[in-house]
Design a protein around this nucleic acid. Structure first.
Length: 786
DNA sequence: ATAGGGTTAG
């Protein structure tokens, strides 16, 4: 990066944002949880120098209240209204997880809010309903006010159709609270069960679209109890709500529970459950079982069924494709072909959704020739590409480094008279970021804002993640499963000419086209991110996010922690985190505290953070632990890193990390894996010293990089190899499996008994705060407790 | 009354 983005300043932040923790709650919630120094297993301490005994807050943060001493409760304004009849609505806990109230991936969240609103065009509402809507929006500032508005309109509104319109429209505006109020108002006044049922299904569906799955469930259950929820509509709506939020198993459970209620799933129900399976990553084979059941029950699948099935085949990103490598990937291809064939046999023509799914699916599998062919076929069959088609193609081509193709698609997109939206811009911005063109990415961000397109958290996460990251030299797996470097197309002189012309013709378009040209020509080197220097720009970007009221999420946090690991120095990282505490003291206070070695002071706060992370799905949670641990490890806080991974292990963030004979590190970052390996070896050592038998064969699994975005990347394996070698540990790479280090138990036991081994196994923090040092030298007994 | 598609991290 040659210059700083707008609003970029280290000390510009004087405002305090939110969420200083409530120490009383922490004490209440975590009284049983020992702090590291209270736990006898963890009593060893560093005898290294104490350094950087800085005060808790820097001078630039003087205006902010002291985080730990602050006793204000967390914000109440964000909490949904607790409604008398729906007492179990969940309240968001903190900034980090307020969008993630349960076990689901962030993948679902950004799509939820204003994604695809259910249209109320052509519904049977009256013009009075329109008017009432305006009044509710304008004057319904609280429950009482909404009720008053509705009372005024009550006599003129005609039945549930009008109320369904109201709550749907309020839902489309993201206002689940108002929607619920209308629902309650309407359902109380309705006498007919089937009309109440209509209201309930619409309410469940609306909440599902907003990602408020807990509320949807509450409405559903209340409706069952009140006797108007026992309908195929309500069940289908709830299945869909679960699916959208990634609760696939719950969706399936609800689906199978229908017969206990004497209900028969219909086409819509099957479509909803198949869709939920696709979103939840259920195996194709399993979904086909449901599909077959549907056929057995005499249901005729329609295009939505087939499109949902297709989504099952083409789900996942590069990571998925990489994981399955050759055999499975070609399997996916076959599955998609089967679905298309079956679809044609049923006399259903592919529509734009089908084609979009195919383009995205083949694109993710790097089958660019097939992508081209499918796109041609689509147009030949007069299925008009839409915004999503172009967006998919531009993303697919950009990710593959085929910038000239991406540029051509973008031109065609403009020619079709379509207008870019936040997703398309975000895809472009991410492509730039991945190529180290953060500056161009930021200017595109500016451009979209000027065009009135509001960036979202995804847009910002891409940019934050890019700081300090060198441009990726991506490699891909081709159809035969071979790994090869991507070809960056060079720019022909005619293209240069076109680009130059478009510069004159259309200022607005040329920005994107020029950037594509730049990428294609690889002329961007001088503008590319040089890495590490402008970390503090993250503060400016973060500040801007807050100004725009875009809530950071756990991906933001992981991106920032990873960026910290790329800081040039410990000091730079600590200043960055310290400054970020002004935005969210809980999240960044923990990271900063652990980095500084204020272990005892931050551990309780860390526990409540871990509690919140525990609410997320396992891959999101492990990404968080990986990022935090890597950062600590990187800056020499190895004992702190180990505490974090052991906490993650205790909380089962990674399933079955270790047994006596085997440790599985393949889902961990290199820092997390190394910290974990030390702990495991100490555990094996204690088995030896307690006189117990060690298993005949000991294994350390690292995988071979299939979980890395870069296929075949063996960073983890190499880090572990270097660690083992450095310690003199007698593990060797297994001949038959490149992702596995093995040794016989007896050889390892002998090594563990050596006098010098303990010293290399025990980790220390480079920087330990004085509070952690009062226990002095660790005893042998304590060591055995490991 | 109930059902489908595109962007970030891992």
């Amino acid at each position: 990066m040659a210059s700083t983005p707008p609003n970029c300043s280290i000390t510009a932040t004087t405002k305090r944002y939110q969420n200083h923790p409530n120490p009383h709650n922490q004490l209440k919630n975590h009284r049983q949880t020992p702090t590291p120094t209270q736990n006898p297993h963890q009593r060893w301490t560093s005898n290294q120098r104490v350094s950087l005994a800085k005060p808790p807050l820097p001078p630039s943060s003087r205006n902010a209240p002291k985080p730990v001493a602050n006793t204000t409760t967390t914000t109440t304004t964000h909490h949904p209204q607790i409604l008398p009849t729906f007492p179990s609505f969940q309240s968001p806990k903190s900034e980090l997880v307020s969008d993630f109230p349960g076990r689901r991936s962030t993948r679902f969240v950004s799509k939820l809010h204003f994604g695809r609103p259910k249209t109320t065009m052509g519904t049977r509402h009256t013009s009075v309903a329109q008017e009432a809507l305006q009044h509710v929006i304008e004057y319904g500032k609280d429950e009482r006010a909404i009720e008053n508005v509705l009372l005024n309109f009550e006599s003129r509104l005609s039945g549930s159709d009008d109320y369904v319109f109201l709550l749907r429209e309020l839902g489309n505006r993201g206002d689940s609270k108002k929607a619920i109020c209308c629902f309650e108002f309407a359902v109380k006044r309705e006498r007919k069960k089937n009309e109440q049922g209509k209201l309930a299904s619409a309410m469940i569906s609306t909440l599902g679209r907003l990602g408020k799955v807990e509320m949807a469930k509450t409405v559903f259950e209340a409706a069952l109890i009140e006797g108007y929820g026992n309908t195929v509509y309500a069940f289908s709506a709830l299945i869909s709500a679960y699916g959208r939020s990634g609760y696939c198993n719950e969706a399936i459970k609800i689906f199978y529970s229908m017969k206990d209620y004497g209900l028969k799933p219909n086409l819509v129900t099957y479509n909803a459950v198949i869709d939920a399976c696709g979103k939840g990553g259920v195996e194709f084979k399993r979904v086909v079982e449901i599909f077959d059941e549907m056929l057995r029950n005499g249901m005729q699948p329609d295009r939505i069924t087939f499109n949902s099935l297709l989504a099952v085949c083409s789900k996942g990103g590069l990571w998925e494709a990489a994981r399955s490598l050759s055999s499975e990937m070609l399997g996916r291809f076959e599955e998609a072909m089967d679905v298309c064939r079956e679809m044609e046999n049923s006399g259903i023509r592919k529509d734009v959704v089908t084609y979009n799914a195919l383009l995205g699916g083949y694109g993710k599998q790097y089958k660019y020739d097939v992508v081209r062919r499918v796109f041609e076929e689509m147009k030949a069959r007069h299925v008009s590409p839409n915004l999503l088609t172009y967006s998919t193609l531009i993303d697919v081509y950009s990710k593959g480094g085929l910038y000239r193709e991406a540029m051509d698609v973008f031109r065609e997109f403009k020619k079709a008279g379509l207008k870019a939206d936040v997703v398309l811009y975000s895809a472009l911005i991410d492509a730039l970021c991945k190529n180290g063109l953060v500056e161009s990415a930021v200017s595109l961000l500016d451009e979209m804002t000027k065009e009135g397109i509001r960036p979202n958290v995804v847009t910002y996460n891409s940019i934050i993640d890019a700081f300090g990251r060198p441009a990726t030299t991506e490699s891909v797996v081709d159809d035969a499963g071979r790994i090869s470097e991507l070809q960056i197309e060079s720019l022909s002189s005619s293209v240069v000419e076109k680009v130059t012309k478009s510069l004159v013709v259309d200022r607005e378009d040329n920005q994107i086209i020029r950037i594509f040209g730049q990428l294609a020509a690889e002329k961007a080197d001088q503008a590319k991110n040089s890495g590490g220097q402008e970390m503090m720009c993250i503060l400016g970007v973060f500040h801007k996010m807050h100004e725009l009221e875009i809530k950071p999420n756990v991906v933001t946090f992981s991106a920032i922690l990873n960026a910290c690991s790329r800081c040039n120095s410990f000091e730079e990282a600590s200043v960055l985190l310290e400054e970020l505490r002004l935005f969210d003291n809980q999240v960044y206070g923990v990271a900063h505290g652990l980095l500084m070695g204020y272990r005892e002071n931050v551990w309780e706060q860390a526990q409540s953070l871990f509690d919140e992370v525990k609410l997320m799905d396992s891959s999101t949670a492990s990404a968080f632990y990986n990022a935090l641990t890597d950062m600590l490890w990187h800056f020499g806080q190895k004992r702190g890193a180990q505490l974090v991974v052991l906490e993650g292990k205790r909380r089962q963030v990674w399933e079955n990390v270790w047994s006596e004979s085997c440790i599985d590190l393949h889902l961990m970052s290199s820092g997390a894996a190394r910290a974990m390996l030390h702990a495991w070896l100490l555990d094996v050592r204690s088995i030896v010293f307690e006189g117990h038998e060690v298993p005949k064969l000991l294994s350390i699994l690292t995988g071979w990089g299939k979980h890395s975005k870069v296929v075949g990347d063996s960073t983890l394996r190499r880090a572990i190899e270097a660690l083992l070698t450095g310690m003199g540990a007698p593990f060797r790479l297994a001949k038959c499996n490149l992702g596995r280090f093995i040794s016989t138990g007896s050889v390892v036991a002998a090594w563990l008994r050596e006098s010098g081994t303990l010293k290399v196994l025990v980790l220390h923090d480079d920087r330990a705060h004085r509070e952690n040092l009062r226990f002095g030298q660790i005893s042998n007994f304590q060591m055995l407790q490991l």
